[in-house]
């Protein structure tokens, strides 16, 4: 589904990604964790074509939709307009399935997206991405700034999407615990390089991962 090989991305003189390789198979849930400034957002911005790689290869079979960090809804437009704009490429006009997935958005459809709570905005951002009918959904910082209960609810929705529609998921997260619980496989990105990779259930017990990302005090 997604294959990245030897990806190098530079901002002027600084190298943000230095030979990153990763893959995600169809229907797989893959986590990308790592500290601030490791290059996670750079990677997903490169996948969606906002940034150009200096070297390496990105192959995506199918459509990618990107839920950006900070949600980035169209704040001055209504929830419904946000969703409709998500269908710009796919020409999809039918928003009903999104309201079925996120019933909380139904009553808010005429509200300006900028006036919603963080969790509601994240639903709009995910709904907007789903309107592109993606085979691959990349979510940058699902949990950032959201209450734990809201995050759990969104995570359940994503697990269901993946299970029911076979959608491939790339979850970029600072909250490693959430990512490792939700996903099948994970990559750890540090200063532009993949340092650890493997199935999530193994990484949960990996001493290096536990020390750096799970506060070192996680129960097995």
């Amino acid at each position: 589904m997604l294959t990245v090989r030897g990806l190098v991305v530079r901002y002027r003189d600084a190298t943000a990604l230095d030979g990153v390789s990763l893959r995600a198979d169809r229907g797989e849930k893959v986590a990308l964790i790592g500290p601030n400034g490791a290059g996670k957002t750079t990677l997903v911005n490169t996948l969606s074509g906002i940034l150009r790689p200096a070297a390496g290869e990105v192959r995506i079979e199918g459509r990618l939709a990107h839920v950006p960090e900070g949600r980035q809804v169209f704040g001055t437009l209504s929830v419904e307009d946000n969703l409709l704009l998500g269908g710009w490429r796919s020409h999809r006009r039918d928003v009903a399935p999104i309201y079925a997935l996120f019933p909380a958005l139904g009553p808010l459809r005429r509200r300006r997206a900028g006036t919603l709570s963080g969790g509601e905005q994240q639903m709009v951002a995910i709904g907007r991405a789903l309107m592109a009918d993606p085979e691959l959904l990349a979510i940058d910082e699902l949990s950032l700034g959201l209450a734990p209960l809201v995050v759990q609810e969104l995570a359940d929705h994503l697990a269901r999407l993946s299970a029911e529609r076979g959608m491939t998921l790339l979850l970029i997260e600072q909250n490693a615990r959430l990512a490792l619980d939700l996903c099948d496989r994970a990559y750890v990105l540090e200063t532009g390089r993949i340092t650890i990779e493997g199935p999530c259930r193994e990484l949960r017990h990996d001493p290096a991962v536990r020390h750096a990302y799970l506060g070192g005090a996680v129960r097995a």
């Binding site: 950006p68 980035q72 169209f74 437009l77 307009d81 704009l85 998500g86 710009w88």
Partner: peptide, 22 residues
């Protein structure tokens, strides 16, 4: 209209507009 909405979207959030393919 789609086109009019897209113009408004560019004004509202250019980065997100690029992400949805405008």
């Amino acid at each position: 209209t789609n086109l009019g909405r897209a113009l408004t979207a560019c004004a509202s959030n250019p980065y997100a507009a690029r992400l949805v393919g405008i």
